[in-house]
Design a protein around this nucleic acid. Sequence first.
DNA 1: ATGACGTATACCCAATTGGCTATACGTTTG
DNA 2: CAAACGTATAGCCAATTGGGTATACGTCAT
Lengths: 107, 107
Amino acid sequence: MSQLQDAVFRALADPTRRGLFERLCRQGDTTVVGLLADAGVSQPVVSKHLKILKAAGLVHDRHEGRYTYYSARREALGTLVDWTTEMAGFWQDRFDDLDDLLKRMDQ
Amino acid sequence: MSQLQDAVFRALADPTRRGLFERLCRQGDTTVVGLLADAGVSQPVVSKHLKILKAAGLVHDRHEGRYTYYSARREALGTLVDWTTEMAGFWQDRFDDLDDLLKRMDQ
DNA sequence: ATGACGTATACCCAATTGGCTATACGTTTG
DNA sequence: CAAACGTATAGCCAATTGGGTATACGTCAT
C-alpha cells in the first residue's frame, strides 16, 4: 500500500543499513568516514546505503564544507510503529501520543 | 546481529508477504486458497512466502486433512517493537509489559 | 595552484529474490 | 480405485540487490 511504508521496511531489511541507522541513533550527527569505521563495507557502499535510508526518510544529511553529517530521523520509525500497532490491533491507546513524543524527540 | 531479527525484517520487507501477514492478522486461521484470493500471485508463490514468514516466526501453520491453516503469530512483532524501542531510546517503560500483553493476545 | 581529503556517482558483477509452470504428494470424494 | 482438490517442492528465469573498483567533484591545506 503506502509508498513510504514500503520504503521504510525495505530500507531496514538490510543488516548493513540497519547497522548504519543504529549507529546514527546512538551517536547522531556522524560523517561518512565516521560511519565507515564499523560498517564493514567500502565508502561508496556506505554512501549508497545512506542514500536509500534518506529516501525512506530514516536519515537526514547536512553538508558542512567537504563533510556530510548524517543523523537519524527517528520520527520515521512512526511508520513502523503505526503498522505494528495496526497489526497487533490492540493497545492503540498506548501509542496514541507517539507522534507528539517522537516530534519532541527530534529536537 | 540477531538472526531472528534479521529474518523478521527481511520477511516483512516484501509487500506481498506483508500483505499475507496483514490478512492473517485481520482474519486469522486461513487456508492457502483463502489467502490466494487477494494475494495477486500464484498458489506456489503464496506457499513460498508463507514458508518464509513461518521461518521468521511470524506465522504458524496447522494441518487439517488436506488443508493447511495459517495464522499470524503476533508475538513475533515483539522483535520489531524491541528494536524500534531501542532505536528510539525513549519510552522504554511504555513497552515494558508488551511481552506479557502479546502473550495474552495469542490466545 | 596543487595535492590530499571527503563524498557521491558510474559502471560492473555475482548472488539473491520473486515470480512462473510443472509436478509430486497426500487427502477427500464419487 | 480414480479423479479432483489443497498444498508443497522443483526447476527456471528476469529483475533486483549488495558489493566492488574507478573516478568525478567539491573543499581544504600547503
